[in-house]
């Protein structure tokens, strides 16, 4: 099982390298889609079918959004000359980041033995307390329902933001004078 995880993670790293380095933007976006479906498959093997389903749906939607953002323009990469300072800085931070995380992993529990202090209670009492046989559904919709409410609010705000940004212009023509008055009218 652990070998499958390693193979999938290598596939995802290669896919993201293709996505970052390829010249054609459409193939970069599709490589990101391949990485996302690899993540989804890995979620399925890790015992998380709910997240695997969600990841597939979100991946399809984000592919549609990214293809919309690339294909209406020229879909070639714009890098003509290599920005060496940015590349060196990026590689430096990549190395620094991996080193720091390897150092931080010494404080984690080993892979395959999670701590599960709170989760034991959820696992034992979910079907009796919430009536949900799927413990993940019990957590998101009952034990931590306020979290899900906040998620819905964040999602609504981002959709509203995208709508406001993408709107062509206001409903009223720019050269038309204001005829209606709102608020406190002085005369």
């Amino acid at each position: 099982m652990i070998a499958i995880f390693h193979v999938l993670l290598f596939f995802m790293i290669i896919g993201s390298a293709v996505a970052i380095e390829t010249k054609n933007m459409l193939s970069a976006v599709i490589a990101v889609g391949a990485v996302g479906f690899g993540v989804s498959l890995l979620f399925l093997f890790l015992g998380a079918p709910d997240i695997a389903i969600t990841q597939v749906i979100v991946e399809i939607l984000s592919l549609i959004i990214l293809i919309r953002a690339t294909t209406f323009a020229d879909n070639r990469a714009v890098e003509r000359k290599i920005d060496s300072f940015a590349t060196i800085t990026g590689l430096f931070f990549l190395g620094f980041f991996v080193m720091a995380t390897v150092w931080a992993f010494s404080d984690l529990t080993p892979f395959g033995e999670p701590l599960m202090v709170v989760s034991q209670r959820y696992l034992a009492g979910s079907s009796a307390e919430t009536g949900a046989v799927n413990v993940v559904a019990g957590v998101i919709l009952d034990y931590r329902a306020y979290d899900t409410l906040g998620e819905a609010m964040v999602l609504f705000t981002s959709v509203l933001g995208a709508f406001v940004i993408l709107r062509r212009r206001g409903k009223k023509p720019l050269d038309e004078a204001d005829t209606e008055q709102f608020g406190i009218i002085s005369d």
């Binding site: 652990i2 990101v32 990214l66 990469a77 940015a86 992993f105």
Partner: peptide
């Protein structure tokens, strides 16, 4: 722990793309 390290390498690829690439879609990727 090699799974964790591979996963952080994947995250590092994202950090690299965010810093070094100039194309906006590449940054989003």
């Amino acid at each position: 722990t090699s799974l964790y390290i591979l996963d952080m390498a994947l995250m590092g690829m994202g950090v690299y793309a965010l810093i070094a690439k100039r194309h906006i879609i590449k940054k989003i990727i």
